[in-house]
């Protein structure tokens, strides 16, 4: 479950990003990508490509781990045994996705321990949406339907990217996410077509989640030379705004179809341009949440630290002292 990479740039121009790269190797690398070929772990790659990929895949892995926490909260209280089983399966999938992604990031030279350290020390980022609480069962339904829907939009695009291990992980992930989406939709439809109280509950949850969902795809595009090169290298497969448009086009009609409302009076499809118009969400809130000041950031990291600390003795007991670490093959 992941929106879009929060790629940080120092505003540097393309020529300074690739200034000290070997021009011949760079040309071969770019020709390979332009031809639709994939880059594999031991291939030569520009430093900036490696750096941005590690950041992207690592953020994605962290988002899967942290994303399982607000949903995991509902396992013990899921209404009915079948939903409990399904939710456990979904949460296990999310944690499994993190494993796949961490392995892909490791092929680029960052160790799993470094990634975990950077997460629990608050150095790495993850998707903004997981820093909000899920106060009712309907919130968990909205997460499973719409957050996973947003994630699929992003992940399908990124699975066509240029780095082999990331693409392979994403293909497996997308196949599993389709169950999450159907499961989430089923839960939302059940509540929306249920009693007035159930309907009100899902309506309230939808209003709570709308701003975080609009934030999910990242800030509006500013065309910069930097993002052009990331597109050329097929690191970024779609702009934040185009991912948001795809999501709105697919899911707003489904939401309205259930007679539910969204808290944006300006949200409508412009029939002439084909684009969806909306009120920009408050991007200052987004910045605050991403940088650690959302309602649940501290809780999420504290729970992740607890898992790491309380699991340490088990790992130590299993440790094979003579073992030699090698980063995964692909």
């Amino acid at each position: 479950m992941y929106g879009n990479a929060y790629i940080e740039t120092d505003g540097s121009k393309v020529h300074s990003i690739i200034a000290d790269e070997d021009p011949i190797k760079l040309a071969l690398f770019e020709a390979r990508i332009a031809a639709g070929d994939k880059i594999e772990p031991k291939d030569w790659m520009p430093k900036e490509y490696r750096k941005q990929l590690i950041r992207m895949i690592e953020q994605h892995g962290h988002s899967e781990i942290i994303g399982s926490l607000p949903e995991g909260t509902w396992i013990t209280r899921a209404p009915g045994f079948r939903r409990k089983l399904a939710l456990m399966a979904k949460v296990q999938d999310e944690v499994g996705h993190a494993q796949l992604l961490y392995s892909a990031a490791e092929t680029l030279g960052k160790s799993r321990e470094d990634m975990t350290n950077d997460l629990i020390n608050g150095k790495s980022k993850y998707s903004n949406v997981f820093n909000y609480p899920a106060p009712t069962w309907a919130d968990s339904a909205i997460i499973a339907w719409l957050i996973d829907a947003g994630a699929i939009v992003n992940q399908l695009a990124n699975s066509k990217g240029s780095y082999g291990p990331y693409c392979r992980a994403l293909e497996r992930i997308c196949a599993e996410e389709s169950f999450h989406l159907k499961y989430g939709h089923d839960n939302v439809v059940f509540l929306a077509t249920g009693t007035p109280i159930q309907r009100q509950m899902v309506q309230n949850a939808l209003h709570r989640w709308w701003e975080p969902i609009m934030h999910f795809f990242g800030p509006p595009d500013k065309s910069s030379q930097h993002s052009e090169i990331l597109m050329r290298w097929k690191l970024k497969m779609g702009s934040n705004d185009s991912m948001r448009q795809t999501f709105l086009a697919m899911y707003v009609p489904k939401i309205w179809d259930l007679g539910l409302t969204l808290p944006d009076p300006n949200l409508r499809k412009n029939e002439e341009s084909g684009f969806w118009e909306y009120t920009e969400p408050n991007w200052e809130v987004f910045k605050q949440v991403i940088n650690g000041n959302g309602p649940c950031n501290k809780e999420r990291l504290a729970v992740r630290r607890m898992a790491e600390e309380k699991g340490r003795w088990v790992r130590k007991a299993l440790m094979n002292q003579g073992a030699m670490y090698v980063s995964p093959l692909s």
């Binding site: 392995s103 490791e106 160790s111 799993r112 321990e113 975990t116 350290n117 629990i120 020390n121 501290k298 809780e299 990291l301 504290a302 630290r305 790491e308 600390e309 340490r312 790992r315 299993l318 440790m319 094979n320 073992a323 030699m324 670490y325 090698v326 980063s327 995964p328």
Partner: peptide, 17 residues
């Protein structure tokens, strides 16, 4: 505790691949 962190993971504490 929202601050606690009883140290860093050391390299390869997550086993071989």
């Amino acid at each position: 505790d929202d601050q606690s962190c009883d140290g860093q993971l050391s390299e390869h504490e997550h086993f071989e691949t």
